[in-house]
Design a protein around this nucleic acid. Structure first.
Length: 156
DNA sequence: GCCAACGTTGGC
DNA sequence: GCCAACGTTGGC
């Protein structure tokens, strides 16, 4: 049975990997996530076809830069096995992987970057985790309505 | 199982 | 660069 489509916000630091990098590469493995809550979303909740707001964190200004889609379900994160990777984790093995990542594909770059300030100003978006102080979770579930509102703000 | 110390995230 | 908020670690 087909799972119902879900919606997500995924953070990336544009200095490391921006929406333009995703547009160029078309798709990417969302590796390097080392937070159990975020991992569990990828492992247990995400399925291909889910839609994603691509959020620029630690940016000037921070905000939603565009849209992406989940294109492949979670697989063990190869960087966790790679001793040369900054994301290497000795407690993760191929036999018993600790970390997982999904594949994310480029969908669209917003013609209007929606800054965090604009998100905060929109009453319809007041429940989004990203506007809450101290919310560091790098993968956050959002509602279909929030996704729709953000799309309208980004396409205007 | 508690909790202090520490490291990281991310807005400002 | 600062620092509040939060997650993780490890001693007990």
């Amino acid at each position: 049975m087909m799972e119902k489509k879900k919606y997500w916000l995924m953070k990336s630091e544009p200095d490391t990997f921006s929406i333009d990098d995703l547009a160029k590469n078309k798709k990417t493995l969302w590796d390097g996530v080392r937070n159990y809550q975020a991992r569990n979303f990828m492992m247990k909740e995400m399925s291909p076809g889910d839609e994603v707001l691509f959020y620029h964190s630690n940016a000037q200004p921070p905000g939603v830069a565009g849209l992406a889609k989940i294109s492949k379900k979670a697989v063990p994160d190869p960087t966790s096995f790679d001793k040369n990777s900054p994301y290497y984790d000795e407690k993760s093995s191929k036999e018993n992987p600790r970390w997982f990542c999904v594949e994310v594909s480029f969908a669209k770059k917003f013609n209007h970057f929606v800054s965090l300030d604009e998100i905060k100003e929109n009453k319809k978006l007041k429940n989004m985790l990203v506007v809450k102080k101290g919310q560091r979770l790098s993968i956050q579930p959002i509602t279909p309505d929030e996704f729709k509102v953000l799309c309208q703000m980004g396409m205007r």
